[in-house]
Design a protein around this nucleic acid. Sequence first.
DNA 1: GGCAGTCAAGTACGC
DNA 2: GCGTACTTGACTGCC
Length: 303
Amino acid sequence: MRIGYPCINRSIGCTASHTFRLASYTEERLIDTVKENLACLEKILEYNREHGMLFFRITSDLVPFASHPVCTYPWQEHFAEEFQRIGKFIRQHGFRISMHPDQFVLMNAPDTNVFQRSIADLVYQTKVLDLMGLDRSAKVQIHVGGVYGDKPASMDRFSDRYESLDHAIKNRLVIENDERLYTITDCLAIHERTGIPVIGDSFHHALNNCGEPFVDLLKSIRATWKVHDGIPMVDYSSQEPGKRTGAHAEHIVPEDFRQFLYQTRMADFDIMLEIKDKEKSARLALDIARDDPRLVIRKNADA
DNA sequence: GGCAGTCAAGTACGC
DNA sequence: GCGTACTTGACTGCC
């Protein structure tokens, strides 16, 4: 078990998510921005290494407009050395890495233009992980997509489209349940057809489920991950009090997390904390989990 | 320097 | 059919 947080570190004074407006696009702007983002990513990873947080989600904004037609610059070649260096650091210290395209990536959209744009984004995200030389356990997680008035047909469309994907994408793609449309059970059904691994989001599951406790599904989820996929990834969050249902918590609730660890003690997985204060809660979570036998501790990998 | 409006992209839903 | 919520950090223009 590794513990981590997504995309942003609020403690170190930089962000790997710098972007700019499409109207401001120039190759120079792109190069400057990516250079800055990669430099910050290295700082974040160094911070995470120091604090023993070995699971991290890399921001989709790392290369702004990478999947947009406006971007014809060969950033992959220009920054090949930086990507290799970061990848080496990741492998050396035993990090687990994920990426998570945003809501506009919809594999099952009836509109083939939307589908094609989604493919372009998946090509970009998998390319980042490939450039870093990461193995197949580094994943790109997406949701199943829309329902479009016919859920079985939309699930079929997802499966058919998945089958048609390039291996470079299929090797990394995993699906995650969401809080409104597709449950873990739906994702498991898609796995049955396609073999795609399933990420369980415990918070989304609490809001959208078929009546079964999250822990009861962990065995089935585990079975969707093959050896080369690594152990399952799980997303964890909790409800922010006083906000709309589904709003992610600002801070981790230690007692809830402790209970989650206890209830899931028979299963091993990497935990992504989708909590708004990011590394702060992740450090607290790590402290709470310090005696958990599942925890991977690799504080001095270079020693 | 601070602030409010805006940003590539889509879907679901209420009216 | 149209407008809005969703979700969210960063950018941009204006004061």
